[in-house]
């Protein structure tokens, strides 16, 4: 079987090269942070993955709306891709956040509003993916997961808000120290690299979703049959 040329691999190669450059840049070419030293370098991965996780989940939300309004199956493939790539990025976000928390706050986990909301965001979307996995019928899966994604997405701002009130009562919210202007460059390179990586993953995952839809779909309609009249 001859596979069609996949344009996304081009983006993937660029993404990987840029990502490598971003790591080298962030690790060796940027001076250590004035307050936190070398530890702050993990933020060059942490912050871009946060931005991209939110961006990808926004795509999922738009696709869910798009599917319910238009019923086009392309939106469902994109939704499936976006949910899983978003979950991947959120896991990356939480892991790097946890690694950063250990030396700076001396704990692996802190019930800090941003961290907590991200964890809840992860759980919410994992629930949607599990829902997708138990539904057999293509259209039904698409409608159900779109509805669940929309409900999950509209709740997230409130989740962040409520977690913030919940914590702010006991402690002042901690925010990472201001990053010097030259360091922003490392963020930008990495953010772009992660964005391109996410695009590559999204496109690959989109194709798998499209294949699965086809497998569950009915064969083309047979020719019309002229019934015999009696």
């Amino acid at each position: 079987m001859k596979l069609p040329f996949a344009w996304e691999h081009l983006i993937g190669v660029i993404a990987l090269l840029l990502f490598c450059y971003g790591q080298v840049f962030g690790l060796f070419m940027v001076p250590p942070d004035a307050h936190m030293g070398d530890v702050a370098r993990i933020l060059f991965v942490h912050v871009p993955s946060a931005w991209n996780a939110f961006f990808v989940f926004t795509i999922a939300f738009v696709c869910a709306l798009g599917y319910l309004i238009s019923g086009r199956k392309g939106f469902d493939h994109a939704l499936e891709a976006a949910l899983e790539v978003g979950i991947l990025l959120t896991i990356l976000l939480l892991m790097t956040g946890s690694i950063f928390a250990k030396p700076t706050w001396d704990v692996w986990w802190k019930w800090e509003p941003r961290l907590t909301s991200s964890a809840i965001m992860l759980m919410t979307y994992v629930g949607v993916v599990v829902l997708r996995s138990v539904v057999q019928d293509n259209e039904r899966r698409a409608v159900w997961s779109s509805a669940a994604t929309i409900l999950a997405s509209v709740t997230l701002p409130l989740t962040y808000f409520s977690v913030q009130i919940w914590r702010s009562i006991h402690q002042i919210q901690t925010s990472p120290a201001d990053i010097d202007a030259p360091l922003r460059m490392a963020w930008r390179i990495n953010a772009l690299a992660v964005l391109l990586l996410a695009t590559w993953f999204l496109a690959r995952r989109w194709r798998i979703a499209a294949r699965r839809w086809e497998l569950g779909d009915a064969p083309p309609l047979p020719e019309p049959l002229q019934p015999e009249e009696v």
Binding site: V130, T159, S162, W166
Partner: peptide, 15 residues
């Protein structure tokens, strides 16, 4: 499946 979907969603209300 129901708790899996519902619980993370109602966190703001629960808090």
């Amino acid at each position: 499946l129901l708790p899996l979907l519902l619980f993370p969603l109602v966190v703001p209300a629960l808090v």
